[in-house]
């Protein structure tokens, strides 16, 4: 009797949803193992992003009209809030990457609250990991290329400190730049989406269970609270989805700038 069988077995006892929320069988019986719901909607999100921006920017006008206005709001937001504070004069060069990152992640995240889809793609670690690794490789490549293979590693260590400090500082600095940074970059997005989906699923299941599945007089209030909290948390999730996409893109801009020029 594990959580996986809760819905299928129709047990009498309420059981909170667990990790089985994130497991998907092939889309149809006998289909290839890799063709699952997250895979389909991961690609679908990229198609939606491309389609929207094609609609907006395919033939950009000097005087924007319709979709171009909306697209430009997105572009200005990424440029002014994400790219400029870190990249400064290098902003334009890196806008294609940051736009792609921000909007792909945002759409992936938003799928958590789109009816029928209802699954945040980034809650499967593979997707954030791919993006974080990409940014990581760009960062290291730029560092080696722009600052030189030796200088890149010496630049990130602050100078003029007492010698013993370096025994502590150097490992921490390298560890954080080359191992922890890309890891947290990916995990931060993954964990937020993962937890958000879990919580939403829990409260919506509470509402569904106590109002429809096993309606009882005692359980009615609990079910109502579940529905209300689900609605409120959906609003909160919308904010978090945006925030995490923003944060991911912002960190990407920061890492790239750290590769382009020495921080200290």
């Amino acid at each position: 009797m594990n959580a996986l069988t809760v819905l299928a077995s129709g047990g009498d006892e309420f059981q909170a949803p667990g990790l089985e929320l994130f497991d998907f069988p092939p889309l149809f019986a006998g289909g290839p193992e890799w063709l699952t719901k997250p895979v389909v909607f991961a690609v679908f999100a990229s198609v939606v992003v491309c389609a929207f921006f094609w609609w907006a920017f395919a033939k950009p006008k000097l005087v924007p009209r319709g979709a171009q206005n909306i697209g430009e709001i997105g572009y200005m937001f990424v440029r002014d809030e994400i790219a400029r504070p870190f990249l400064g004069k290098n902003t334009d060069r890196w806008m294609p990457m940051l736009m792609s990152l921000f909007f792909l992640i945002w759409f992936w995240n938003m799928f958590a609250v789109v009816p029928i889809i209802q699954f945040p793609i980034a809650s499967h670690i593979a997707f954030p990991a791919v993006l974080a690794l990409f940014v990581y490789f760009v960062k290291v490549y730029l560092g080696l290329r722009r600052q030189g293979p030796v200088k890149y590693f010496t630049n990130m260590i602050p100078k003029g400190l007492p010698l013993p400090v370096y025994f502590l500082l150097v490992p921490i600095e390298y560890l954080s730049t080359f191992l922890i940074a890309p890891f947290t970059h990916a995990v931060r997005l993954f964990a937020n989406m993962f937890a958000g989906h879990m919580i939403l699923a829990f409260f919506s299941l509470v509402g569904f269970w106590f109002l429809f599945e096993k309606p009882t007089a005692a359980g009615f209030g609990v079910g109502l609270v579940g529905v209300l909290v689900t609605i409120i948390l959906t609003a909160l999730e919308l904010l978090i989805q945006f925030l995490q996409a923003f944060l991911f893109a912002m960190l990407a801009a920061m890492y790239i700038q750290s590769g382009l020029e020495a921080e200290h």
Partner: peptide, 22 residues
């Protein structure tokens, strides 16, 4: 397989949005 799909999705967006539209 999700790694592959992730790379593919990002590549598509990078090409269409990043290389053409931006």
């Amino acid at each position: 397989f999700e790694l592959v799909v992730g790379i593919f999705s990002f590549a598509v967006v990078m090409i269409v949005l990043g290389r053409i539209l931006v």
